[in-house]
Structure formats: structure tokens, C-alpha cells
Amino acid sequence: MSRGRPELDRERCKGCTLCVSACPEKILVMSRDQFNRQGVPFAVCFDESRCTACMSCAIICPDMAIRIFRLTAAASEPNVAASDG
């Protein structure tokens, strides 16, 4: 299962909520008692660990307020000096 991270720009968000219903994992919600500079609640992801990078939220966002990153596991060489293992 691929994993992702949504990056939501709270100032670009107009609070239209289209992303909230578009997200299949239902991990987006409108901020409560927090408002952006336009005075509207904005979309937030409350559990990024369940994001699958499906991009639905970003696709439906009319304001380019969402960017999506796909997380890929990349095994790194053990680095004796740097490792804090």
C-alpha cells in the first residue's frame, strides 16, 4: 500500500470542503475554532499515516491549496558515524 503526505496550504484554502468528501480514507476535516487570514476554517489532515497518496484531495481542490508527496521506503546503508542506532 503506497503511503503519502498531503501538504495543505491553510491560507490558500477557501474552506470549500470539497477535499473532505473526496478523500477515500476520510482523514481530512475542516479546522475547528481556527481560521486562516480570510477568516475561514481550512482543511487539515488529522492522520497522515493513513494517507495513500491517491491525490483525490489535490485533484478536486479548486485553489491549488494541496500538494501530495509519495513516501517510498529507501533502505539506506548503515553509516557507522552518523547512525544514532
Binding site: 503511503r3 491525490m55 489535490a58 501530495i68 509519495r70 529507501a74 533502505a75 539506506s76 546503508e77 542506532g85
Partner: peptide, 19 residues
């Protein structure tokens, strides 16, 4: 023990021609 680090890759960003 290989350390599992997660790499991020932008897969949905602003089109270059969109201001």
C-alpha cells in the same frame, strides 16, 4: 540493521504555467 528512511517525492504539485 538498515535504517528505514522514507523518501518523499512530490507527485501532485502546482503546474508550472499556473500562477
Amino acid at each position: 540493521m538498515p535504517v528505514e528512511t522514507l523518501q518523499e517525492k512530490l507527485v501532485y504539485g502546482r503546474p508550472q504555467v499556473l500562477a
